[in-house]
């Protein structure tokens, strides 16, 4: 058995060596750092890491910190509306574009270009457009509608929706592109069969075509979810968490505690919470998407 294994390794030795960089990256840069982060979250680290053990203290503090709780709530609201609107809007755009429209490629280009731009740009530009003294409100006042109010970026009640608007602008095209690609792959004979069966077009989309595109839909939602959990740049550029803490998000909370507030223990506790949440939510999706039909190498 042992001899066999060593023979196998010897025959494929170069392959093992070639995969060494990947192994190092996985073991140290991913798993090692993760473990270290988790370890620090049980310590009393402040400016510098300390290797004592304070149990769940940091977690208790964390969930006693209003700013963190606000961040979590904000993320939930943003993620919910962002995913929902991106999905609906992207799907509708794809379906409308699929109706044999003229200038199709122009529409496609227009709806997807924001996705090629950075989140910083998305945040900045919508901040200007929504800025009461510069953007839409200012323009409406200029036209004489002096009662017109659109102050989302400076209104702590509405600021989340401003962030949602910017992120939807950035991400809806992704759903459109993936679903459109899927729609194009649907066998034309299926469409003919539905016409013989007398099924109205909207019903065909809802009951037949969209269920067929489940993999694309899941993929686009997974991609969008990842970007929304990591969301940092857009908030920094657009509102910097304000007004007050009205648009704080977890990623920013962690960064602030790491680099400005010198509270490493708390930051790592927060990042551990995110880590666990993401793994719990993502693991089944990743498993079903990438490993169920395993590649040839397995």
């Amino acid at each position: 058995m042992g001899a066999e294994l060593s023979r196998h390794v010897k025959r494929n030795l170069v392959a093992y060596i070639a995969l060494l960089p990947m192994a190092i990256v996985v073991i140290f840069a991913y798993l090692g750092t993760m473990a270290w982060s988790v370890r620090l979250s049980f310590s009393s680290s402040k400016l510098l890491p300390r290797y004592d053990f304070v149990g769940a203290d940091q977690y208790l503090t964390l969930f006693d910190t209003p700013r963190w709780l606000t961040s979590l709530g904000n993320l939930a609201v943003i993620a919910f509306f962002f995913l929902l609107i991106c999905f609906l809007l992207g799907t509708l755009l794809a379906i409308f574009i699929d109706q044999n429209v003229r200038a199709e490629s122009l529409f496609r280009t227009v709806f997807l270009y924001p996705y090629a731009m950075s989140f910083v740009v998305a945040g900045l530009i919508w901040q200007w457009i929504l800025n009461p003294d510069l953007g839409i409100q200012h323009t409406m006042h200029g036209f004489g509608f002096t009662d017109f109010v659109l102050d989302w970026v400076v209104n702590s009640e509405m600021v989340l929706y401003a962030v949602i608007l910017a992120t939807v602008w950035h991400g809806a095209g992704l759903v459109m592109a993936l679903i459109l690609a899927g729609l194009r792959g649907v066998d034309t004979e299926i469409w003919r069969a539905t016409r013989i069966d007398g099924i109205p077009a909207w019903r065909v989309y809802v009951s037949i075509v969209l269920p067929m595109l489940r993999p694309m839909i899941i993929t686009s939602l997974v991609l969008l979810s990842i970007s929304i959990v990591k969301m940092y740049d857009v908030v920094v550029a657009m509102t910097n968490g304000g007004p007050g803490t009205a648009s704080e998000v977890p990623a920013k909370f962690i960064m602030d505690n790491l680099f400005e507030r010198a509270n490493i223990g708390l930051a790592t506790a927060a990042s551990t919470v995110m880590l666990v949440t993401v793994l719990l939510v993502m693991a089944p999706v990743i498993y079903s998407q990438y490993f169920r039909k395993s590649g040839r190498a397995s």
């Binding site: 991913y30 090692g32 990623a251 990042s271 995110m274």
Partner: peptide, 11 residues
């Protein structure tokens, strides 16, 4: 899939 914030400090 994991947010960068988890890796950043150790790196």
């Amino acid at each position: 899939f994991v947010p960068y914030q988890v890796f950043i400090y150790p790196l």
